[in-house]
Design a protein around this nucleic acid. Sequence first.
DNA 1: GTATGTGAACCACTTCACAGCA
DNA 2: TGCTGTGAAGTGGTTCACATAC
Lengths: 213, 213
Amino acid sequence: MPIEIPDVVIDRLPVYARALALLDRNGRAVVSSQELGAQLGVTPAQIRKDLSYFGRFGKQGRGYSVPRLLEELRQILGLDREWTMVLVGVGQLGRAILAYGGFAPQGFRIIGAFDAEPATIGQQVNGARVQPASELEASLRTRPADIGIVATPAAQAQQVIDRLVGCGVKAILNYAPIAAHVPPHVHIKDIDPVLSLQSMTFYLKSQLTAPVK
Amino acid sequence: MPIEIPDVVIDRLPVYARALALLDRNGRAVVSSQELGAQLGVTPAQIRKDLSYFGRFGKQGRGYSVPRLLEELRQILGLDREWTMVLVGVGQLGRAILAYGGFAPQGFRIIGAFDAEPATIGQQVNGARVQPASELEASLRTRPADIGIVATPAAQAQQVIDRLVGCGVKAILNYAPIAAHVPPHVHIKDIDPVLSLQSMTFYLKSQLTAPVK
DNA sequence: GTATGTGAACCACTTCACAGCA
DNA sequence: TGCTGTGAAGTGGTTCACATAC
């Protein structure tokens, strides 16, 4: 039955869900692919096609019920439950991640934090006690996590990822500046602002000679 | 002369550059597209095709000179000079960005930080004095910046982006969870870990019934 | 012998355009 | 009438495969 769904489609669904959540909070009952697309910078056809992979959620002539479609997307994406995460690497970046208030409200809970640095181990950071990295496996055995967050220096990142994968972690959010290798059944997303900057400069450079004003 | 270069190609170049920099530091003189691809999880043909948009940098039968190709890429991307950035939004996230040590070594310097919160204005954060958001325009007039970093709450982000664009900023690194609108000559990249998590859960969800071990 | 550079073939995603339904 | 759902057409990016050069 399952026609393969393109990854790009999956990547867009959370964007749709977020926009719908906002509309919903504003009391909006119905929205068309046209309007949703305008808000998100996506073509209406794109939205309709994306949604059509999962079902028929709209009403012809009217549009989509905001709460209904939102609920459907949350279910499709698995956002209707809580997901547990462990953080490895509690340096400056790791601390910022622990302090970040954007995960919990979306159902992503950090249940453990690990670091190799003796000075860091045992510290209380944002309500989490930093555990020795050596205890990663033992800890995950008693209390499995769905997702691993990697915020170690580049040099340790691949090894940490291998260990997480070895513990059965199936998804990794990687903040380390490396192109990591993972087996095919493991999903990984990189967060790398430097790469984003370094590609934008290409266009900045070209524009220097082309004044806009 | 200029055949349009796909954006995806530009996005990959910094990845290549980073890998080459590592090889270079390790004293590696020559590398093949084959080997570079294996390291990065990219096909050799992809790498060769990408590079072919910009010139002929390799030697048949040998491969690419690591320092030579690295230098070419740095030049193509504009990484051979310093870029200035201003940060808007000095909350928890903004502070983490100011404290982040990964920008400066790559030539990205934050020259100004702005916030609307009276309690935050005037504070010294990581060597930068937080200026009132109201002074954004005046400050950028005397000291222009190439790139704007947006780390405000979602509600203010679009407005802040509009102001940055109005000041002539041509590239934006957006940490706010919104789908921002910018004119076509402005480049924007979103950093949004929550979206990354929310798309990975789709696959986690599907795997729950498919045991691997 | 070996690895590049590149047209051509292929594939995947996007957009079109319209039938169908509210 | 208005907007969805969707095959079909179109577009853009990737991979192939080989002539070419070292």
